[in-house]
Design a protein around this nucleic acid. Structure first.
Length: 323
DNA sequence: AGTGGAAACCGCCATT
DNA sequence: TAAATGGCGGTTTCCA
């Protein structure tokens, strides 16, 4: 995982009746040339079992020029979901092509119920995965050897990634871009598409559970924003809870409901993310970076950085220096 | 690398 | 009665 060269050749697999939004997202990210803005360009292809016309879920006809051979040759394969219930598997040749692409070193990702296709290949056995919450129960029953995480936005298993609902495909792709090309590139893509630069993979699929009574302005999100703006300060659960006008116990509970993680883990992730940006763009010393993002010492930053990224901060900076 | 103190996490449970 | 709350304490994790 440490030394993967960024992917360049991207293939999307379109089942019949492909979901419009998933297709649109991968097209928007990989199919549109943004190299004028200094962003990486991709060799993007839509692939189907057989080249020809494919109708999307909403009835739009798409001309698909490529077949499975192009899919096998890609660095990154994205399995799109069919618009119908994922009851019948894709043709065996498709599953074989996905396995072959993976064997050749490709990253294979799925959106939404595309996870069913991915699971049908057997590649997900013994791995963690997610899918749309609506199909989680059926998925778990059909693929007992896959560890399903039904309530996260996406799951990164390195060479295999699965995204939840179709819009979470956006989060999945931004995460991939961040992983392979760095925070600056991912943020630039996000800015282009005018979406939030990053939602963490562990974030709950139900981010804002609508409350029936009038109390829709829960101050949790406000506190999170405040925390982001004051990352360099020592932020304890107790202090955050006080700011949210809750007891620490309730705050922790509501926090998990809303974000899927714990306050400390979330804070750590945000701090690491900010550190990545500073390392990529500025030339601050590692000590200074650690101070600015709220780590008590450079050693603490280094340790967490290595744990999450696999490389120490200096190497990370050097790897992205030329971009 | 090891370590001691502090913070965080989470199940449990009484209370509202 | 069902659901939310928040305190308690055992265990884990963090960090200087």
């Amino acid at each position: 995982v440490t030394a993967t060269r960024p992917f360049r050749s991207v293939a999307a697999y379109l089942p019949s009746c492909v979901g419009d939004l998933s297709l649109g997202i991968v097209g928007e990210v990989f199919g549109c040339d943004r190299s004028a803005g200094g962003l990486p360009g991709f060799d993007f292809a839509c692939c189907a079992h057989r080249p020809g016309r494919v109708r999307t879920e909403s009835g739009i006809e798409v001309q698909v020029d490529h077949g499975l051979d192009r899919l096998v040759a890609a660095d990154l394969v994205i399995v799109l979901p069919p618009g119908y219930a994922p009851d019948r598997p894709e043709p065996p040749e498709v599953l074989a092509a996905l396995r072959e692409a993976h064997r050749r070193g490709a990253i294979v990702a799925s959106c939404c119920t595309g996870a069913f296709t991915l699971a049908d290949t057997g590649l997900l056995d013994g791995r963690r995965a997610t899918t749309h919450w609506q199909w989680a129960e059926r998925f778990a029953a059909r693929y007992p050897s896959v560890t399903l995480h039904p309530d996260v936005l996406y799951v990164d298993e390195g060479d295999l990634l699965t995204g939840a609902g179709s819009a979470a495909g956006m989060d999945l792709l931004l995460h991939l871009l961040r992983r392979e090309y760095g925070a600056a590139v991912a943020t630039a893509f996000a800015r282009h598409m005018v979406v939030a630069p990053h939602r963490d993979g562990g974030q709950a699929q139900f981010v804002a559970r609508p409350l029936p009574d009038g109390c829709c302005d829960d101050n949790l999100s406000g506190v999170l924003e405040w925390a982001l703006a004051n990352l360099d300060r020592p932020l304890t659960v107790e202090r955050l809870a006080a700011r949210a006008l809750m007891s620490p116990r309730s705050f922790a509970r509501r926090f998990r409901e809303a974000t899927g993680t714990t306050p400390a883990a979330w804070l750590r992730a945000q701090r690491l993310r900010r550190a990545e940006e500073l390392l990529e763009t500025g030339d601050l010393s590692v000590e200074e970076v650690a101070r600015r993002v709220g780590f008590g010492s450079a050693a603490a930053l280094r340790e967490h950085f290595v744990r999450q990224r696999g490389v120490p901060p200096r190497d990370y900076r050097r790897a992205f220096a030329g971009r």
